[in-house]
Structures are given as structure tokens and as C-alpha cells.
Design a protein around this nucleic acid. Structure first.
Lengths: 134, 134
DNA sequence: TTATCTGCAAACATTTTGCAGCGAG
DNA sequence: CTCGCTGCAAAATGTTTGCAGATAA
């Protein structure tokens, strides 16, 4: 069993609390910039640099999921499960569901092996309109 | 059957020829910057702007595949098949294989439907070491 | 001839880094 | 009191755009 990395230094700062809090409330992926705006809008002032650095450290600790949107920007969302998983993301409201998929893993492994590839990793995300948006 | 878009105006310029030629010879994904360097190295001078614009238009016409590397940079490679497909990419030498995957499509559709999502699209790439590199 | 194409320079957008000051422990 | 955290300003990157001049057709 893999153990979650023991996140190095963590000082309980106002900024970090604000960021984690915002992530906790959101069920959608947000960019660092969006999160920064969100915080600013609700009166909690946190420097953009700090938002970037904090999100990065949270991602390193597998506390948030990271993926790139169409424009190549990094998007973050609180992790529900620490296990390997993928996402089903609504292209309209941004809501996302974490999905497990043994089937997908199996397919990736088999496909790779069939072509003589080893040490397989993969990325996969599914996009569509959620029931509320369609 | 979908018909390939009738690519708007296309003048046969030296630059476009150089770019298409370089793409034709390469079996690996290259960034616009890399392609630009490659051309410069082999004596064929093409402006970086032109490389970007040409690759973009080729991508629009589905003549090249586009995907983002880990750093979010756009990578291009000549398309072997115009049909929807995914890639198996060697993380060492960059060589890639186009892979079809009815299984994957089916999985994406079913997963989405199960969660009430419609209008499904998906992205998926598989990474590993090819036989020559492992 | 003329509408495209080219390419430089400048603009852009996102993310990272240098560094002086703040503040949690 | 210390050392990590913060945040401004500036740098770094990758990509796009404005525009004047070159050039296929």
C-alpha cells in the first residue's frame, strides 16, 4: 500500500486556511486565477503568488486534483478520493464527478503491452453536459 | 460519413512546404518551437510565427494531431488516420502510435450516461516506454 | 494585380522567481 | 527569536496579434 506523503512544513496561516476553505466549498475545477478572484471577491485577501504556491503544494500532497483545461491552464479541485481516478466534467457548469474505472486501466495496460510498451501511465477525462445543464 | 473540411485558401509557399515536409519525416510529437529549431538547423528558414500559424491551420484541417505535454505545451504530429483516435506515446523517445479504441469509447459513453451526462467528448492518451527504449 | 502569406516586434496570459518583510510556533 | 510564509514586482514561457512588405496565382 502506498502511503500519502507526509506533507513537509505546514504553518497554519490565514491564507492557507482561506484557500483550503474555498476548495472545500467548491465542487468545480477552478484555476489559480479564478480562486484568487473568488477570495478577493469575498473579502479575503490572498496574493496570487500564494494561491499558486499553495495549490501546487496541495497537489504535490494529493490533496487536490489537477488537470488542464482546453487552454492549457491548470485547474484544481479538492480530492474526494486519494486513489487513482478520472473525472467526468460538465462543460457547462464545471461540476465534476470522480470516476473509477478498472475497465479503462485494463484497456490502457493491454493496449500498451500489445504494442510493446511498458511502464504505463495514462490520462483520461470525460466531458459532457450534466443532467442539470442539458 | 464526415467529410474533411475543404481547407480555405492555401498558397504553396516555401515555408509551408518546409513545415509539411518536416512533419512528414517525423514520427514523434514536436512543439512548434522544436519544429522551428529543426527547420533552422537544416538551413530552411521559417519564422516562428509562421510555424505556429501553419501548425494551427493544419490542426484545424485535421492534418496533424495536437496534444499537450506535461508542461501544457502544444505538440504536433502528422496524422496517420483522420478518424477519431488516441495515442500511445513513448516517454523516452517520443515515438507514438495511433490507437483506436472502441472499448474506450464505450466506457466513456456508458460512464457518462450512468451519471446523467450527455453530449460526451473525452480525451485520453497512454504513456509508457516503447520496446526500443525499455 | 491583389489577396494571402510571412516575419518582425510587441502584446498577452499564465506561471515562476527574487527578495525584503511578516508572523506562527 | 527563527525560519517558513507572503506578496510585490519582475522575469520567464509559450503563444498570439498588428502591420508593412513579400509573393503566389
Amino acid at each position: 500500500m502506498m502511503q500519502e506523503p507526509a506533507l513537509s512544513p505546514v504553518r497554519a496561516t490565514r491564507q492557507r486556511a482561506a484557500i483550503e476553505n474555498a476548495l472545500e466549498r467548491s465542487r468545480v475545477f477552478m484555476s489559480a486565477q479564478e480562486l484568487h478572484q473568488e477570495l478577493k471577491g469575498s473579502g479575503r485577501r490572498v496574493g496570487l503568488t500564494t494561491v499558486y504556491r499553495t495549490l501546487q503544494s496541495l497537489a504535490d500532497a494529493s490533496r487536490v486534483d489537477v488537470l488542464r483545461n482546453e487552454n492549457g491552464e491548470l485547474m484544481y479541485r479538492r480530492c474526494e478520493s486519494r486513489r487513482h481516478h478520472h473525472h467526468l466534467v460538465c462543460t457547462s457548469c464545471g461540476k465534476s464527478v470522480e470516476i473509477a474505472s478498472d475497465q479503462l486501466e485494463t484497456w490502457a495496460d493491454q493496449t500498451a503491452r500489445r504494442h510493446g510498451f511498458t511502464a504505463v501511465k495514462h490520462v483520461a477525462e470525460v466531458y459532457g453536459l450534466c443532467s442539470a445543464c442539458s
